[in-house]
Amino acid sequence: MQVSFKVRRFDPEAGKPPYYDQYTLDVPDYFTVLDALLQVRDEVDGSLALRCSCRSAICGSCAMHINGHAHLACKSRIQNFASKTGEIVVEPMGNMPVIKDLVVEMKPFWSKVQAVTPWLIPEGPPPQREYVVPNSAMLELAGVMNCIMCGCCVSDCTVLTVDKSFLAPAALAKAYRFVADPRDGVSEERLRELSKRSGIWDCTRCFECVQQCPKNVAPMERILALRAKAMEVGFTNNIGSRHSESIARSVKHSGWLDELRVPIESAGLFNIKALIGYIPVGFRALVKGKVPPIIHRPRPGADSVKRIFEKLEVRK
């Protein structure tokens, strides 16, 4: 099939801003975007820079934006990406500075991985043999360790775009891998650190990382699991955890959300500064008649909801 690749180029030595090059190729159906880019590099334009190695989605080198979202070029079949006019747009990953063409700077990515103390810290000396642990726990870990650190999730993370300090999905999924490991002895310390600013509570649950992860690691689900574990072991004195508790309390008592209480309870009832911060927003809403009912009345059926809560909450 005939495909036209629109590739974003940047050469730091050329002294000019980024631009796009167009390459039209005739390629077999089974070709991936990587196959095509390599053909460009070999036969058309040797100056095109990209990282790649394994061609089978295991080394994590070739993540890039294809039609605006992060994908592994080696896992992206051309037939799934070509537009009706046969065009595919290829650009470097997002949220990372560009070094040359499709090659991005990944140092910040790795420094975040490093920030979660990414190695097993067992309690006490290792046993003489392997740790005796359930297979299910190892399969759960293998699911996260499927992560190849390609950066797709970080590239498209919507929080990172507005806040460079966010630990971001890859590092947090990595952190989960240790917290969930029955062999690790410092899970609680890990959860304490992760509950701080820039950690698990700053994720906005946008599912971009779940969507873009080429290895089904579902980083966001791991972040949510970390939140649950953090609350479970008692790291509840933070706004994220209070927010979660507040929503649960509201649904439990009335069957639905009390939009007025949630922000107040989340900030903390004695967090005067935050509460004052709500005033202008509340005032504007009040003027427009956009304020939820001041008296939050239970929905019909609230009793039933409450019983379900009571039944399922006690277990913990």
Binding site: R205, L224, R227, A248, V251, R299, P300
Partner: peptide, 26 residues
Amino acid sequence: LKEAACTGAGVLNEKNPELADTLNAR
């Protein structure tokens, strides 16, 4: 569905997935 509960907005799921799923199944 006047007696239906909140879906949990994804927040209830992080704390207690089975509870959230039960409310939605209801």
